[in-house]
């Protein structure tokens, strides 16, 4: 978790320029930066090269828990108050698959949202931001100490930034 620090904010109009800038930053050994894009983009995602998201583990565990809960709920209720319906066995697994499937989806989706919130909160990074990053520009905010800012600014500009400003 990093708190608000100063740095350099650059905005780009083109995907290839932005992904080029990201690659140059990484080649220079600068890794503490945040990228904003208006829409998800494969090329930028590949340039950033995030590790695999830990959220998917939440989804898996949520789904498995949901599946187990679905069978547990239906079987427990059937045996707790046994009623023979239509001559079928008390614990009929075939129709309970439907409940287990639905709860798998429900718990899986819920766990995904919880995981997303949890990890976003834990890794929250406050940095400079502009409204146009949700519109038609791609933003890169690089956190760096004052003495490196000139170097980073030159680097971002060389990569084709439309605008670069230093945030203290």
């Amino acid at each position: 978790m990093s708190t608000m620090t100063g740095g350099v904010l650059a905005s780009y109009r083109f995907v290839d320029a932005a992904s080029g800038a990201i690659r140059t930053l990484k080649a220079e050994g600068i890794r503490d930066f945040t990228v904003y894009t208006p829409v998800p983009n494969v090329e930028i995602a590949q340039a950033v090269g995030h590790r695999v998201s830990p959220v998917r583990l939440w989804t898996l565990l949520g789904g498995l828990l949901g599946c187990a809960s679905g069978f547990a709920l239906t079987l427990w209720m059937s045996f707790d108050w046994p009623l023979v319906v239509g001559g079928k066995p008390i614990g009929s697994v075939i129709p309970y698959v439907v409940i287990a499937f639905e709860l798998t989806i429900l718990f899986g989706a819920g766990a995904t949202i919880l995981g997303l919130i949890f990890h976003s909160w834990r890794n929250r990074q406050m940095g400079a931001y502009e409204g146009r990053f949700t519109d038609d520009h791609i933003g890169i905010f690089v956190r760096c100490p004052t003495e490196r800012r000139a170097e980073v600014e030159a680097l971002l500009r060389a990569a084709g930034a439309e605008e670069v400003r230093v945030e203290s």
Binding site: G86, G87, K88, I94, P95, V97, V98
Partner: peptide, 8 residues
């Protein structure tokens, strides 16, 4: 399978 099982 489900409907055939139910209809019996």
């Amino acid at each position: 399978l489900l409907v055939i099982w139910y209809g019996n």
